[in-house]
Design a binder for these strands. Structure first.
Length: 292
DNA sequence: GACCAGGTGTCGT
DNA sequence: ACGACACATGGT
């Protein structure tokens, strides 16, 4: 265990409450956060280790002693300035009661500003897995191959490290058949240390095309990497949850995933990905309730 | 033991 | 282009 700094306050526009904070940190966009006993969250973003807890004006945070101050980076990561509040207001909730219902359930919900590398590695692990299992795979990769940032806390490994990892190590991370996708993508990207900047210069549709060329990256993973890693709020990932909730909410029986992705981007517009995050949260909350 | 999991790649038609 | 199936592993 580390020694921690004093708690400090990060002021936030649209500060989240307890349920929304849980959805932000453990709702399937990032897989690097864990809830400790007393509603304290411990997580890693970039090369920073942080603890968070609720605060009326935003969030309280602290970090291991002796590290560069994370306040500025944390504010960007959590969109403390509330840029996404305006993007949410631009969604068509005034004419769409179904969307309005989802938005009202999780006030303060937002997209975290992960790095492209983190989003790509995590969502390469995501296919055909539950969120808790993805988190364990990512944690295992960090622990075995990532740089130690503070006692017991590891950054994610870079692509070079992943490309060089032996099969036994990857197998021990519980990746299953995803191990070969991760290694193949790592071997491409270790040759392209500037890949994120290169792809980041592209328009979103071109970005999606390029991401899909990587082994193990199909339409859904590409959309997640664009949304969560490159901050493309118009990107609209369609997974089993979104498929189900769109079909039910808009009576789109028989629509396939590519068609639903087009529907989402056309109907929700420039911040369709944000709408997606609220719908995803609402769908999962619904399924946890007892059956009616 | 069967079924499913924030899908993708590969094969049939 | 569309549908079915295999894929590794573990259980919100």
């Amino acid at each position: 265990m580390s020694d921690w700094s004093k708690w400090q306050v990060l002021r936030m526009v649209a500060a989240p409450g307890e349920a929304t904070l849980a959805e932000i940190l453990d709702g399937g966009q990032s897989f690097r956060w864990q809830r400790n006993g007393d509603s304290v969250w411990t997580g890693i973003f970039g090369h920073h280790v942080v603890q968070l807890k609720l605060h009326p004006e935003g969030l309280a945070w602290r970090q291991p002693l002796g590290k560069p101050n994370v306040a500025a980076d944390l504010g960007l990561y959590l969109d403390a300035s509330g840029a996404q509040v305006r993007a949410i207001d631009a969604l068509p909730w005034r004419s769409d009661p179904f969307l309005a219902g989802a938005l009202s359930r999780f006030p303060g919900l937002r997209i975290l500003a992960q790095t492209p590398d983190e989003a790509l590695l995590a969502f390469l692990c995501s296919s055909n897995k539950q969120i808790i299992q993805i988190r364990r795979m990512v944690a295992a990769l960090a622990e075995r191959l990532g740089q130690e940032l503070a006692p017991g806390f590891h950054a994610l490994p870079d692509w070079e490290k992943l490309a060089q990892a032996d099969a036994a190590t990857l197998k021990a991370c519980g990746l299953g058949y995803r191990a070969k996708f991760i290694q193949a993508t790592a071997r491409e990207l270790e040759q392209r240390p500037n890949w994120a900047a290169e792809l980041g210069a592209l328009e979103t549709d071109a970005l999606l095309v390029e991401l899909t060329k990587l082994p193990g990256v199909g339409p859904k993973v590409a959309a997640c990497v664009a949304l969560f890693g490159f901050g493309r709020l118009e990107s609209f990932p369609v997974d089993t949850w979104i498929e189900q909730i769109l079909v039910e909410g808009y009576a789109l029986n028989g629509w396939k995933r590519t068609a639903l992705e087009h529907f989402g981007r056309a109907h929700y517009g420039a911040s369709a990905g944000l709408a997606q995050q609220f719908l995803f949260a609402a769908a999962r909350a619904q399924s946890k309730k007892p059956k009616d």
